[in-house]
Design a protein around this nucleic acid. Sequence first.
DNA 1: CATGAATGAGGCTTCATTCAT
DNA 2: TATGAATGAAGCCTCATTCAT
Lengths: 235, 235, 235, 235
Amino acid sequence: MVPSDTVTRILDAAEVLFAEHGFSETSLRRITGRAEVNLAAVNYHFGSKQALIQAVFFRYLDPFSADLHQRLDALEADETGACDLEGLLDTLFTSVLEMPSEGHDLRTFMKLLGLAYSQAQRHLRDELRNRYGDIFSRFLKLLRRATRELADDERFWRLHFMLGSVIFTLSGLNTLRDIAEHDYHQRITIRELAQRLKPVALNALRAPVTEVASNAMTAQHADQVTCYPRTGTHS
Amino acid sequence: MVPSDTVTRILDAAEVLFAEHGFSETSLRRITGRAEVNLAAVNYHFGSKQALIQAVFFRYLDPFSADLHQRLDALEADETGACDLEGLLDTLFTSVLEMPSEGHDLRTFMKLLGLAYSQAQRHLRDELRNRYGDIFSRFLKLLRRATRELADDERFWRLHFMLGSVIFTLSGLNTLRDIAEHDYHQRITIRELAQRLKPVALNALRAPVTEVASNAMTAQHADQVTCYPRTGTHS
Amino acid sequence: MVPSDTVTRILDAAEVLFAEHGFSETSLRRITGRAEVNLAAVNYHFGSKQALIQAVFFRYLDPFSADLHQRLDALEADETGACDLEGLLDTLFTSVLEMPSEGHDLRTFMKLLGLAYSQAQRHLRDELRNRYGDIFSRFLKLLRRATRELADDERFWRLHFMLGSVIFTLSGLNTLRDIAEHDYHQRITIRELAQRLKPVALNALRAPVTEVASNAMTAQHADQVTCYPRTGTHS
Amino acid sequence: MVPSDTVTRILDAAEVLFAEHGFSETSLRRITGRAEVNLAAVNYHFGSKQALIQAVFFRYLDPFSADLHQRLDALEADETGACDLEGLLDTLFTSVLEMPSEGHDLRTFMKLLGLAYSQAQRHLRDELRNRYGDIFSRFLKLLRRATRELADDERFWRLHFMLGSVIFTLSGLNTLRDIAEHDYHQRITIRELAQRLKPVALNALRAPVTEVASNAMTAQHADQVTCYPRTGTHS
DNA sequence: CATGAATGAGGCTTCATTCAT
DNA sequence: TATGAATGAAGCCTCATTCAT
């Protein structure tokens, strides 16, 4: 039941090295070397390098997924909050930031997430979609309630714009932070970054919808798009 | 001067394969195989795999950089436009989208850009910063004029939020487009995506600035943060 | 005394897998996997992989050896039959075919026997010769009585010709049967194959002996080849 | 065109080691060690271990196949000989024995052939059948003319009985020869063995056909089987 | 200018076995 | 009696690179 010391040590080493150098660029030898563990132990405990990569993600995302589920339960219990975009984003941010993360680093993990998307790890993306599709769908459904004015496809793309912002900045945080520190003499924390991101994300999601000249556009969509009194932001 | 056929064929093959499988995951054998070129040709013409990777980027970014310079010249000539955020973004988008790109695919290149950021290609990032620092600085300066209300550091982060949106969505475009097509029966083009992105980016950059509770923040600073028309940080 | 369930399960699994994939190509992992038994159980119960291989043979050959001994007892008791080649072969065939073989398959075992001869399993051949030398010698002695016209060395080689026929066809039975079924629409059983083999073996053992042109052979000897009733070597 | 020295050295080493220890039991390291060649050379020149195994066979069988084709041409040109079983077998034996075999050993190759049949080398058997199916079919057709009295299926099985005799005795020749030498003080050559085998094979093919009580037996087959004037040998 | 051959290093995986429990 | 964990050795294969031609 309890993961053996060896398993934990391998996961710890892999997490850091993967984040730092990428998956392909990190050899099992290096991982087991850092973990001070026999090379064959990886295959014994995980079966393959691919499985190890997935295990690194699961160890992080499983608790997160559970935590976010709980928070969404609470959010749904509160009738008024259910449709509030800001509240929804707050919930998400809180869940991400408050993860116990014994020893893990959010930054490290975000780099991994960035890698997962950009590197050719089809197996990983499939597995993540498979394993965390539920929580993602649930969040998406709430987001829909909170952004009724958006067409489904529009919301889809905006959500991924935001996802890109998060993953890109967090996964490249080390580099970016160095630049920022050098240019603006300010060392930012992840929490501060989240605070900066929130209003941006809010405003982005609430941006007015421009008519997109699509091939497949239906009349209804077109209607929804134009009549669209937005609040808050301004041109 | 004129790149030999061999060189071009190698670059073409490398561009596609790198984008599809990542740098480390693409062997020279595969590249030369696709290019129908001798294995040793890569080292002969480029010297090393790293140099080939850089060459792929240079071939794309050099013309783009020149093109954007020209467009910014025109923009600066027009006094009124110089401070218009929308105009600036339009210029950028146009330059990106109108790149002659003989045979190249914008999507392909964006995937490469995503890889360059997430993968452990220190040498590449350094070289890109070195070679295209000028055009980036120039754009940043204009952006600054167009967003005077933003503190420098705030602008810095928001710019990277936007960069993340672009790179993430474009580099993962194939996947995302498939999902969108499946769920919303709508096959999007890059141009349409740009159209969707523009209002979002605009609104994101113009989002109100929230107080950031920094560790090193002094009380005065905290006050300044809430009032909207920016003061605070310094030029 | 009674082999534990674990032991039996291992032997069963090993028998099938060895026959199907060869000794070296079958890992203990696979065997214990199929047997649903702990990996270490093989080394615990048998000591080593080699010992397991031998045990598989012993389990089959020990009862067979005992059975054949009994049948030869009966044959020897009958004075007339002792010198009848057909009777001797019948006895052998019967013993082979009537083996109780609880759960074992004659075909499976013949494949193992083929492997034992062709694969580099010195230890195994030595052990088999050691353990079953007696019954083999006894059979050979009877065969000698039944084929007095053959020189010892001639008999030796012919016996192995026959052995080759048996082992080769039975060990490759699956494949050959498939071909035969495809080409001649006839699915043969092991018993039918034995029936086909018997006259062939009989006739083969009784073939006229040709003069063997040894290195030092003179021209005259060569002439002798055509004349039928054998002369030449002898015991 | 001319196989490089490296290629030949690898093939030579592989041939001997495979024959001596089997395919799985012979590592590429050992082969390249014996051939005094870089380990990676095998993969460079052959692509994989499997391909190397096949190449070993091709090097031997390609010339043999060509030679046998020629001899069969000659045999068919001679009208009278075309239907003579003894002549046909002589042709085959001659072709096998007279193979130039620069440096190769027939015995070595026969061991390989034995391995090919008994070991789990599906890929090899398929490739052999594919590549040498023609010459085999041609021989079979001639054999059919020479053994008109045999039903097709009967001939099929008897042919494989003979094949088993050949492969088994030749592939185990070293061992058997040692025994024979010890027991009968006679060191046999391959040619002598062939001479011993010939009359046995002839008589085996000409053995009287016994009625086989098959499930699927048709009336015609039954007829063919019984009416069967045999010559020569007898029970 | 180009290439076929070759190479040393290192990749992941699997193996049979051992040992503490 | 049985087992989960661990291990050193070795397996095959692929890599980027070099070099003589």
